[in-house]
Amino acid sequence: MTDTTAPDLPAWPYPRWVAHRGAGKLAPENTLAAFRLGAQHGYRMFECDAKLSSDGVVFLMHDATLQRTTNARERIGAGHSAVGGDHPWHTLSQLDAGGWHSRAYAGEPLPTLEAVASFCIRNGYFLNIEIKPTPGTERHTGEAVAHEAARLWQSQSVQPLLTSFQPEALMGAQESAPALPRGLLLDSLWTGWLECALTLGCQAIVCNYALWDESTVRQAQSAGFRTLSYTVNDEWVAERLIALGTDGIITDRVDLFTPA
């Protein structure tokens, strides 16, 4: 298969291999424990999900609701809102975000973006922050996450990559911190995806890996975009994406793939 990498793309400072939500499924996702485990496997770049507490603190969580990855039902009570964005950080900081995974991680807290930034900066790691808004707060969350990321990484030569499935969230990020690199996440190639990424000033397209073929890689790279894929957990998929000349592979299988 022909390597389609465009020779005139801007410099890309990030590693090819990215640990999904820290260490994917081997540790509780979106926790510092997961980041540490990914680092033990040799990963230097991590993907995480960021959203806002009701009082504006940026913290890590994938789901809109708290039930799957915390003990909110016990701690907050079934009669209260299960939506993470409905609670102040003081309440969220008391939750156990590790016990659901295994006893070894019981008591692991939800981390703030500030805590993750400290970990990454001190160790020279890179970060892909997926902006994961509570529904209805897309633009505001994009603005807040970008503003916080710009503040935390202001003295660093390489900034975090901000991505989202929500164009409105990326629009907020673009207005709040235009210097931070952005990427449009896609689970399908909906009409106008390339034009949307251009309008948003993105540097990358991050696709479900099945969407990349020679044609789509060529389209994206010809338009000046770097090409990344999620979530790649099989060797044959990774080999195909590398042969296509894509730039980044996000994986749960930090135990399978050794990052170069």
Rank of each mutant, 00 (worst) to 15 (best):
V57S: 06
F59L: 06
F59N: 05
L60R: 05
M61D: 04
H62V: 03
L66M: 12
L66V: 03
Q67N: 14
Q67P: 06
T69N: 05
T69G: 05
T69M: 03
A72M: 09
A72E: 08
R75S: 11
I76H: 03
G77M: 01
G77S: 02
G79L: 10
G79D: 14
H80E: 13
S81Q: 05
S81P: 09
G84N: 00
G84S: 07
D86S: 12
D86P: 02
H87R: 04
H90W: 12
S93F: 00
S93W: 01
Q94D: 14
W100H: 10
R103G: 15
Y105Q: 10
A106P: 04
A106D: 04
E108V: 13
P109N: 06
L110T: 02
L110A: 00
P111W: 03
P111E: 05
T112G: 12
L113P: 08
L113E: 12
S118N: 09
S118T: 13
F119C: 09
I121A: 02
N123H: 15
G124R: 12
F126R: 15
L127Y: 07
I129T: 07
I131Q: 06
K132D: 09
P135C: 07
P135S: 07
G136R: 00
E138D: 15
E138A: 15
E138H: 08
R139Q: 14
G142W: 04
V145Y: 01
H147G: 11
E148P: 02
A149H: 01
L152P: 03
W153E: 06
V158W: 09
V158N: 04
Q159A: 14
T163V: 14
T163G: 04
T163M: 09
F165R: 09
Q166D: 13
P167M: 06
P167R: 08
A169W: 10
L170A: 02
G172P: 08
A173N: 10
A177E: 10
P178W: 10
A179S: 14
A179H: 15
L180M: 04
P181R: 13
P181N: 11
R182M: 09
L185W: 08
L185A: 01
L189Y: 00
L189V: 05
T191L: 12
T191E: 13
W193L: 06
A197D: 00
T199D: 14
T199W: 09
Q203S: 14
